[in-house]
Simulated assay, not measured.
Amino acid sequence: MGTGPAYPPFSDAKMVVPGVATQLVELVLQGLDYQVEMRRQPWNRLMREARNLELAAIYPYVVTPERAKDFLASDPLFHIKLRFFGLADDGRDWDLGSAEQPVRLCRPNGYALNEDLRPYLQHHEEIQWIRPNSLESCFLMLERGRVDLIPINLATGRYTIKRTFDTPPSIRTIELFEDDATLHLLVPKARPGAEALLERFNRELARVKLSPAGKRIYEQVDQFLSQEPLIPQ
């Protein structure tokens, strides 16, 4: 089974506890009495190895039409709030539906583009995608004026800002496009017994969500999102 190196607070090698999604998945696997070898490597490599049946499952992923062709998705592990992050003193009134306004968007390699955002951008001819290997790089480039906006979920964006900067620049969430999505464990459709595996996983996931240990995991995310904003809103 595999997960990625940097998607805090859900899965992240640099955290003392390696992410709330990892905690949740491990609880589910313990309840199923599964012995699992966990790999942590780049998101695109995880996807490739899972398609080649080198991994039984990968997490946490947003489901896209491309991924749905090859993978079955678990019930939601977490709900996430998608936002745009930009500099507070930028001064521009962003309208991503306008084909005339150039914009540089930063999305790390392996991060999916939200499906509801795609039609919003399809007629925009002046979008330049910047694709570094990490979200930290996106925020450093934002600080230096090399990118304009970063589409990312609120929890991951806030956590990354806090970890990247000793003194954060003035960053805000911009109300261009707000949407919610869900994170899932993905199982390759070509894997023998994939549907049965996912059925067992979902049944145990439902039990874990109601357990004291499961509730503590979700409280970690809720507590983080209910803190005083790290950035101006």
Rank of each mutant, 00 (worst) to 15 (best):
G214K: 03
K14G: 06
D89K: 07
G86C: 05
G31E: 08
Y7L: 12
I127L: 13
I150E: 00
P76F: 06
K69G: 04
I150R: 02
L82M: 13
E219H: 15
V221E: 15
K14D: 15
Q227A: 11
S134A: 14
E175W: 04
N52G: 04
R207N: 03
C138N: 10
P132Q: 10
E115Q: 14
Y34K: 09
E199V: 07
A112Q: 14
Q41S: 09
D180S: 14
A68Y: 07
A112V: 13
P232M: 13
L55F: 11
G193E: 11
Y7V: 07
G31P: 01
G193Y: 10
E175K: 14
V17C: 00
T156G: 06
L186I: 08
A190W: 04
F165E: 05
Q128V: 11
S74P: 05
L55M: 12
F177V: 00
N153M: 01
M38P: 01
F139M: 03
V28R: 09
I80R: 05
P169W: 02
I161H: 03
L113R: 09
T22A: 08
E54M: 10
E125S: 10
S226L: 07
N114K: 02
L24Y: 09
F201Q: 08
A13N: 11
Y34D: 09
P188R: 05
H123R: 13
D166L: 12
R45E: 13
M38L: 15
E199Q: 14
T64S: 13
R146H: 12
V25C: 08
D222V: 08
L205D: 11
F224G: 03
H79N: 10
V221K: 07
S170N: 06
I171L: 13
M141P: 00
D75M: 06
L32A: 03
F10P: 14
K69M: 09
I217R: 06
R158L: 02
G91W: 08
Q220M: 11
R203A: 15
G2W: 01
E178S: 08
K215D: 02
V187G: 01
E100F: 07
L77R: 01
R163E: 12
A181R: 00
L210S: 10
I130T: 10
N114M: 05
R203P: 00
Y111M: 10
N52K: 15
G157I: 01
P169K: 08
